[in-house]
Amino acid sequence: MNIKAVKISLYVCIALFITSCADKPKDVIMRANTGFALGTTYSIQYEIFDEKEDYKNDIENVFFEVNQSISTYIRTSDISRINKGEKDIVIDDYFKTVYEFSREVYEKTDGYYDPSVGALVNAWGFGPEKPINNLNKQQVDSILLFTGFDKVRVTKEGKVEKDHPSVTFDFNSLGKGYAIDLIGEMLDKKGSKNYIIEVGGEILTKGINTSKSKKWFVGIDSPIQDEEERQYIEYITLENKAMATSGNYRKFRIDPITGDHYVHILNAKTGYPMKNNVLSVSVVADNCMKADAYATAFMVMPYEKTKQLLSELKDVDAYIVSKDEQGNMQTYSTKGFQDLIIK
């Protein structure tokens, strides 16, 4: 399973910056902020009520606080210190939230979603630590001995207990979505009624695109194209919803010794990069952390098991792109997702 904060990019198919003032209601002003955070870019457009208002510092502060809690790329973050074996750290609300939701998804997916794969992520070369070149089965099996969300717990005092000191957390599979939700909460408190938040392709929307008096809409990237290409297979509308996409067709690592290609989505049950016919999964949910986590989970779960779980999750919809036996692209989508597709 991929626990790294790089996923397939969703491109916002709206004019975020080039809009006609004449199209806007007179009492609505939209502010746009862009930048770099969480190892990727962000683009956020939100409603303000005074030309002087600009929430970029507030946005950057959200990214900073989330990083200090759950970024494995910051050596002094809480998660990095816990991964190193420090036992006296009392987790903050950020860590607690992602931990508890990870536990929920872990249980609902029968362990296919598992943020304790940090050591495997590092070993395969997709984390902050030096990879193990020419990784062999014995080494993978040894790492699996201390992989598993059932091997960790949080005490009443808010401290993490591990069955093995080498258990390593990695919440990157939902950390980006969680940060987006926090930015949305911040904008809500500021009184913004209409916004779209995009970070590395993950998206959260509220209200409408006031510049066009229409719902926000986004495009789903085609997984069958060259890296330099930009083709979309569907466009959907989003209103007060979040969407995240996960895939295994562009992000990979080449072993410098063997020349083997390893995709970045790892299976916590086997310890190996995923090998299946699913190319990408786009998930729509009521918050981005949920969409983010399930998009990753559905890339790892067996195809039929994913469809079964989707039938049980009433607040999660998905669009799955896969290959048939002849290598042709095929799609599956839930009824709720189909209703969002722009015909």
Rank of each mutant, 00 (worst) to 15 (best):
E229D: 12
L204I: 12
K84Q: 15
I3V: 15
G327F: 00
T109K: 00
G247T: 08
I70H: 10
A15P: 00
K335M: 02
R81H: 10
I254Y: 12
A295L: 01
M243H: 04
M299C: 13
T258A: 11
N172S: 14
N134Q: 02
S9G: 12
E229W: 11
S80V: 06
F146H: 15
D88R: 08
Y46P: 04
G35V: 06
L313A: 12
A293G: 13
D93L: 04
K4A: 14
Q330G: 08
K307N: 11
K193H: 11
I224C: 06
G127R: 06
Y46V: 05
A318S: 10
K7T: 11
N83F: 04
K206P: 11
E198A: 13
I91E: 01
G177Q: 02
N209R: 08
N287T: 07
E239P: 07
G207I: 03
E47I: 14
C21L: 00
E198F: 05
K307W: 10
F217M: 04
V284T: 03
F101N: 14
E100I: 10
F49I: 13
V28Y: 06
N240A: 09
V152P: 07
P302A: 15
D110W: 05
P223C: 04
S77I: 09
I180W: 05
A242D: 03
L313H: 07
G111K: 11
A15H: 02
F36N: 09
K176T: 15
Q308Y: 09
T245R: 02
F36E: 01
M186A: 04
S69N: 06
F169L: 07
K206S: 09
S80P: 00
K193W: 00
K162N: 06
D226T: 07
L279N: 14
I48W: 02
Y99R: 15
K314Q: 07
A123R: 14
D150E: 13
I236V: 15
I48H: 08
Y272T: 10
T296V: 05
S69G: 04
E239K: 12
E65D: 15
V105N: 08
Y303F: 14
E86D: 05
V281R: 03
T270I: 02
E325H: 11
E100T: 15
M186F: 11
A37L: 06
Q225R: 14
P165L: 13
A295V: 05
K151L: 08
Y235T: 10
I59G: 08
E198G: 09
C288D: 03
S222N: 15
